[in-house]
C-alpha cells in the first residue's frame, strides 16, 4: 500500500500566501480600469500620484442666486488650499492629500466630492447656500473628464 502524501503546514502557508496575491487583484479588477491589475494591491508604478492636470472652480451662492465669498477653513489647513486652487499646478499640489496614490485619475473627483460635502455641512448647517464645484481634468495619456457637483439646490 502506498504511503499517504500530505502537505506540511509550511506548504499550506506558502500556497495561501501566493493564492492571496492572485485573488486580491483579480477581485478588485474592473473592466473600466486599464489595466485591470493596476491598483494599490498589485505591482504597478501606477498606483501612484495623479497624472491628471485639473482646473477647479467653486462657487458659493445665496438662495437668490447671488454669489458670495466662500467660507474657508483656517490658514494652513489642506482643505483651504484645495478650495482655493485654480490652476492645474495649484490643484495637483493641493489634491495630494486627497488621494496621494490614486488608482486612477478620476479618483480625485470622487474624493473631492466627499470633502466638499463635509465642507458644505460644516459651514452651512442650515442649508441656506448652494455650492457648485466645476472640475475639468486632462490626463496626459488618458481621456479628459469633467464633472459638475451642485450641493444644496433650493427646494
Amino acid at each position: 500500500m502506498e504511503p499517504q502524501r500530505t502537505w506540511s503546514p509550511a506548504r499550506w502557508v506558502a500556497a495561501l500566501y501566493l493564492a492571496a496575491q492572485v485573488v486580491i487583484p483579480l477581485a478588485r479588477a474592473r473592466p473600466s480600469r486599464v489595466p485591470p491589475f493596476s491598483s494599490r494591491f498589485s505591482w504597478s508604478m501606477f498606483a501612484g500620484p495623479l497624472t491628471a492636470r485639473c482646473a477647479h472652480r467653486v462657487t458659493w451662492t445665496r438662495g437668490d442666486g447671488q454669489e458670495v465669498p466662500l467660507p474657508l477653513p483656517p490658514e494652513g489647513h489642506p482643505v483651504r488650499a484645495l478650495l482655493l486652487a485654480r490652476t492645474a499646478d495649484e490643484f495637483v499640489r493641493a489634491s495630494q492629500p486627497l488621494v496621494t496614490y490614486a488608482e486612477d485619475d478620476q479618483e480625485v473627483s470622487r474624493a473631492l466630492d466627499e470633502v466638499l460635502r463635509r465642507h458644505k455641512r460644516a459651514v452651512d448647517p442650515r442649508g441656506e447656500r448652494v455650492l457648485v464645484s466645476d472640475l475639468r481634468c486632462e490626463a496626459p495619456y488618458g481621456a479628459p473628464f469633467r464633472r459638475v457637483l451642485t450641493l444644496g439646490l433650493p427646494r
Partner: peptide, 11 residues
C-alpha cells in the same frame, strides 16, 4: 506582476 502590467498598460 510588474511585467504583466507593463505589457497591458497603454503607457
Amino acid at each position: 506582476g510588474s511585467v504583466l502590467v507593463k505589457l497591458t498598460h497603454p503607457w
